[in-house]
Simulated scan of single mutants.
Amino acid sequence: MVSLTFVFYLTCLFLWGKAQETHQSSSFHQESGFKSVNVGESILLRCFPGRMSIVLYWYRQTLGQIPKPITYLNNYGKTGTFYGEFANNSRFTLKTENHNNHLSISDLRISDSATYYCAHRASTIVEFAEGVTVSVKGSGLNINTSLQRSSSEIIQLGDSVTLNCTVHTGTCDGEHRVYWFKDSEESYPGLIYTHGGRNDQCERKNNKQPRNCVYNLPMENLNLSHNGIYYCAVASCGHILFGNGTKLELKNEEVSLILVYFLSGALAFTTILTLSLAALLYKHKRKGQQATGKL
């Protein structure tokens, strides 16, 4: 019969192995955030595999579409395999020095605007990193975003604001969809709202094609979780184009008031302490003078 001690040690060994595997797998990560680049430039998307990474992948997800695989790389190899439209495309290359999995894209085009995900397989499960959103600026749709304040110029907690996105369609007469993204320090960039058809938001001139389209994103009862940079993105004519972004920043007035009260109290305490010390010093000096006079 198997002893309880052996079972105990075996269980501990199994749990320790699982903990090590989890720790090593968690070291897998990707540089995330929002990157804005111009047409024709190059970009390097960095991905760092974990010790348990067996296979590494790159995926690209364009708004409204499913993720498409870009590359497959055995972590013990140095050459990756590219899929579909990315195969034999010299603009896409892998940088695998020091067992990294960095994706390099050169001669950027508007169509390269998307969210890129690095993924790995440590055992039987494929794990995705946070992803990085790439916005390629250049010719095409012209998008402007702005912030419309509903009350005062200073945005405070509890206020309401409206974000505006103006799309100048130019010569592109295809239907388009409008998305809103938020990028903040507390969370990864993510899609927060999608507009439907454009017809109700577009101005027409002489029954011609729409020229200007305005989309609004109202936000009420603002709190600190609303802080961040908001981007308007448009999918049209086979391209994705991001706006310039609008920063929304609110300050915690309660914290500021507490700080003011604290500093005021500290100043009052310092003043009282200074006056008390001065009085004691004066009193001590008077006693010294009186003692000297008696002598």
Rank of each mutant, 00 (worst) to 15 (best):
A266L: 10
S276H: 11
L259H: 11
C232I: 01
T274V: 11
S53P: 09
G17P: 01
N207Y: 01
D112S: 04
N74G: 09
L295E: 13
H23W: 15
H168M: 15
M52V: 15
Q61S: 06
G17Y: 05
T11D: 08
L63E: 06
H102D: 06
L259Q: 13
E41V: 00
Q148M: 12
E130K: 12
H195E: 14
G190N: 12
Q61G: 05
G228V: 01
E97N: 08
E254Q: 13
H120P: 05
H168C: 11
V136H: 01
I240N: 04
S36P: 04
Y72N: 10
Q289P: 06
S160L: 00
L13D: 05
S90Y: 08
I154D: 06
R149Q: 10
G293N: 14
E220F: 04
G17D: 05
G174D: 13
T194S: 11
T93S: 07
Y72A: 05
N227Y: 03
S53Y: 04
A235C: 04
Y116G: 03
Y9N: 09
K137Q: 15
S187T: 14
G77H: 09
Q61R: 14
K208E: 06
V7D: 15
R286Q: 15
L94C: 02
H168E: 15
Y72T: 09
C12Q: 10
P67L: 06
R46L: 08
E41D: 14
L13R: 09
V7S: 14
N221D: 09
Y57T: 07
S26R: 14
G170P: 01
W58N: 02
H29Y: 11
T115R: 08
T79F: 08
H195N: 10
G64K: 08
K285W: 09
K285M: 09
H120N: 10
F86H: 04
L250S: 00
S184D: 13
T246C: 04
I258S: 14
S104M: 12
G170V: 03
L259I: 10
D183T: 11
T169L: 07
V255S: 13
W58F: 02
V214D: 13
S151D: 05
I258M: 15
E130P: 11
L108F: 00
G238D: 06
S184W: 06
P189L: 08
